[in-house]
Nucleic acid binder design. Structure first.
Lengths: 191, 191
DNA sequence: CGAAAATTTGACATGACTCAACTGGAGTGG
DNA sequence: CCACTCCAGTTGAGTCATGTCAAATTTTCG
């Protein structure tokens, strides 16, 4: 179970079993069923989530009342509203399970304690955030560069694993277009 | 001059004069005039730039041959193609000066040496990238949530300092619309 | 099996782009 | 200091990608 976190951490830094146990003690475990909210608009994002099994999505509700998905997370991904988490300010996002999900999470205070007591985690999170930021920059580029249709094909190619696990209307939401338009694109594609 | 970097670093961590001198020794100084390129498509982003005075922008050229600005940097901001920098892969971006600019920069190898020899910098960059990632997440949200017109007004409110320093057509490019359309919005706004 | 949820279809609407032409101001050179 | 050029910004007409809305169809799942 927690082996997943251990493997994840050892991608960027080296921690032995003993130190890992100490690190792990800052985390808590949770099992939640499909479509449950882990975070809701107006709350403070108290914890940083690490997915062991399952799928999460982050979304907000726009002025038309539509849910806009901005992010998915599967195994070995971190999920939080980073802005709300680091500033402990209220969030505009929801975080919800797409499937039954098992995760580890760490609260803000424990996160800070962890970083103090285990400097190796400074490096770990520096690497994680550096990589996440690089990915976000690329994503912003795609949003500038691609039409909706191109975004769809790029998504298919880059993240095929989601297609099996996430319903179409959530993919449409993630790609920032209507289910109707996605439907149209798919029809065109098949021919 | 380098006081600017010192002040910046001391926002997140504490380094005394002596340690700062050691840290500074990993950086190099450069002065470049308006409209010069610091990075071009196809190159590898060898260094991470820190602006002392001036303005930088990052852009790519789309298939229609238009420059698409994705990022500005002013005093005390870092600029690089993070993806290209961390993987030392070829970039699709240009980094160009908008004004005459003075900056400090650190090459990838020196960046890694710096992190090894000065663990305090792990924390510094963890904080920097964490914040940058949070900002990128918010920016992605705005790109999902706002119409072009709303993006413009949001930009006006959030980054008024750019209006004075950056020509309109670059702002249009940054907001991902045509100069003509920006013109239309401004006309509407004045009435 | 039936109800609710997801997906598709089609008619119509619109935000934003394209292209071409015009205006005005900032340099530059004679 | 004028004339000329060049580039940024504006205007307007026409167009297209994508959205809206309503209804039909298919799938999911209790």
């Amino acid at each position: 179970m927690s082996e997943i976190l251990k493997a994840h951490i050892n991608k960027f830094v080296t921690v032995n079993d003993e130190e890992f146990e100490a690190i792990l003690s800052y985390f808590q475990f949770k099992r939640i069923s499909k479509k449950d909210n882990l975070l809701e608009e107006g709350q403070i994002c108290k914890s940083n989530l690490f997915v062991l099994h399952g799928v999460l999505r982050k979304f907000f509700i726009n002025d038309k009342g539509t849910e806009q998905t901005t992010e998915f997370a599967i195994e070995q991904w971190w999920m939080s509203d980073t802005f709300s988490f680091i500033n402990q300010s209220t969030t505009e996002f929801y975080i919800q399970t797409v499937e039954n999900t098992e995760l580890l999470y760490i609260d803000k205070v424990d996160y800070e304690k962890l970083l103090e007591t285990h400097p190796v985690m400074e490096k770990h999170f520096r690497c994680i955030y550096q990589k996440a930021y690089a990915a976000a920059q690329m994503r912003i580029k795609f949003l500038y560069d691609y039409s909706r249709e191109e975004l769809y094909y790029h998504f298919l190619k880059a993240q095929p694993e989601f297609l099996q696990r996430v319903p179409q209307y959530l993919i449409a939401s993630y790609l920032n277009f209507t289910p109707e338009y996605l439907s149209e694109i798919r029809k065109k594609g098949i021919s």
